[in-house]
Design a protein around this nucleic acid. Structure first.
Lengths: 342, 342
DNA sequence: ATGAAAGCGCTAACAA
DNA sequence: TTGTTAGCGCTTTCAT
């Protein structure tokens, strides 16, 4: 019982041709019940499992989809992947995952690997900015991007610019003029869009941009906390924080807690667990990663049917989860004077 | 440019035999530099990508591993999967993920699917309690379990019983006698072990067990908060909470926050983001899912080499992250009387 | 150092 | 309704 049984072992045992076995395992109805039973018994007796690879080789159609994201260990993406897997299984598709670690080279390698696996399609959170190498595979391995977009490819994103504008504007409305943007990573497209929104809102409100308020931050959580401390130790520190993504938000919130800084207004781009249970409760721009994943998968499946569709950029609505942290007003000049006078 | 180029297209273009192409793409050194160059040029020109499935079909060895967990959207497992993927990529292996949703039937289906994909091996967080169906595939598709164990299979787990004992004992040491266990799910092996530890510690301390303090909870977060509310509305409510897993812990902590219950002692089995930033900061039994994943993968790879190894159960150390929540003492009888007298 | 031919497990014509 | 044959893209003898 050491070698795996193949279709011909089953055929031999059941005394039928391999084609009949093939019919049985593929649920073709035109098989005599008696034969079908013999085959089924042999399958059980031999622990036969069809070889998907051989099947795909013959039919040309793989039965896997690939998902490539920054990191699987990220609440945003794990939820997104979850949505994809839930749906894939209903279609009998397997999900191959790969992470980029924000490395364009690794992204490229992952994509090539998926191509070599003959995946039916891939859902990708792109990092690199040159995806022309995908061109030749387009018709054979459709790609829909999530969270970020690539010209010519389908995408499912949120309106980062609009949502970030809204968030920053709320801070400005509370009188804040020194607002820091924590979590800016130039490698990520969304970061640029959120930054642009931040800068535009400030400028429109006659607030001078201060590059020290937009520290560049890599993906490790330590980087965000370091950036926070730098910014807070400035001579003119910010009175409000716009957190550019949920991944960094938790570490920043944690650091603020330890610093005892409950006086800073905060808005996070992306909701996260316990945002409602810290003090003050963190107001968030809410994106729905599960929905994004679901829509991306849906689109991918559409492409299976028709490979020559126009690329469409789908935008998912964001919400604003109003809690307490964005309601903190900027200290008024009079307050400052008053407190100094005492 | 619509059909994918195959090895023979490359061979034709380079004017060599397909075997030579095969040698080039497999890095066999005995190829004339001139030929090699011709082949490489053709590969680029044709956007040739080797077909892994055809290769695996021939060689018999797949190049994927499977990972099956409760849910990908769970901090514990997403971290674990992350570790596996990080290592798999260094060996040129792809990772296929599947979730069980705590459903033994779905687990079985996932495993069979992986068998049909000819994965090299699988890492599994088992849900069902009958895994005998894996027997025939053992030699061909080794399985190492994580978090939970199955007799006869390798496993990487923590000592749930010991760690939970330690946690509950800390609560008892603070004078608590009414301790609830929130997050008990009879379908999960670890839950039973943690419950046993909880019951043993209580019994050893002469504390009567109260089944109402151990509500059964399904995996949705709403279930945990409902259980919490039930327990707190008892005539003799608990003064301390032992949270059986990190997944439920965040929702329970969140609910406690909204209830304003900062008076309850709490220990969570499993650390989680912002545990240090809520009030009181939550003390946790810390397991290292990334390490568990890494060790499981390591073991799986050992099995690739020697399929007939003895099954070994590897235990990973847990730590205790001492924060504030477990230090809360049980209200003393005198305190109660005093407050009543006022 | 290179190539021709066989065959991995399966499905898709085509026959019977 | 059932069986025979060819061949998917690749690697692997075995020649050359």
């Amino acid at each position: 019982m050491n070698e795996r049984a193949g279709i011909k072992d089953v055929a031999a045992m059941a005394n039928v041709s391999i084609k009949t076995v093939s019919r049985v395992i593929n649920g073709v109805s035109t098989v005599e019940p008696a034969m079908r039973r013999r085959v089924e018994e042999a399958i059980v007796a031999l622990n036969y499992v069809p070889n998907t690879m051989a099947r795909s080789l013959k039919t040309g159609a793989g039965n896997t989809v690939g998902v490539v994201v920054d990191s699987i260990d990220d609440v945003f993406f794990s939820s997104l992947v979850s949505a994809i897997e839930d749906r894939a299984i209903t279609l009998g598709l397997s999900v191959i995952i790969g992470s980029t670690g924000f490395d364009a080279g690794r992204e490229h390698a992952q994509l090539l690997n998926l191509a070599s696996q003959h995946v039916r399609g891939v859902i990708l959170a792109p990092v690199g900015n040159d995806h022309t190498f995908l061109e030749p595979y387009r018709s054979i391995m459709p790609v829909v991007t999530v969270d970020r977009s690539v010209p010519g490819l389908d995408s499912v994103t949120v309106d980062d610019y609009a949502a970030a504008r809204d968030g920053v504007a709320r801070l400005v409305a509370r009188g804040h003029r020194r607002i820091a943007l924590i979590g800016y990573d130039p490698r990520i497209q969304t970061a640029d869009r959120r930054r642009a929104a931040y800068e535009d809102v400030l400028t429109e409100n006659g607030i001078a941009l201060d590059p020290r308020f937009v520290p560049e931050v890599s993906f490790e959580s330590a980087a965000a906390t370091a950036a926070l401390k730098d910014v807070l130790s400035l001579a003119d520190p910010p009175t409000a924080l716009f957190l550019a993504n949920a991944r960094h938000a938790t570490s920043v919130i944690s650091a603020m807690h330890h610093l005892g800084r409950t006086d800073l207004a905060v808005i996070s781009f992306g909701d996260f667990a316990l945002a409602d249970a810290v003090n003050p409760a963190v107001s968030c721009i809410d994106q729905d990663p599960y929905l994004i994943g679901a829509l991306a998968f849906e689109r991918l499946v559409e492409r299976f049917g028709d490979t020559s569709l126009e690329a469409v950029d789908r935008t998912v609505e964001t919400g604003f989860v109003s809690r307490a942290s964005h309601l903190i007003s900027a200290p008024k000049l009079t307050d400052v004077l008053t407190s100094e006078r005492r």
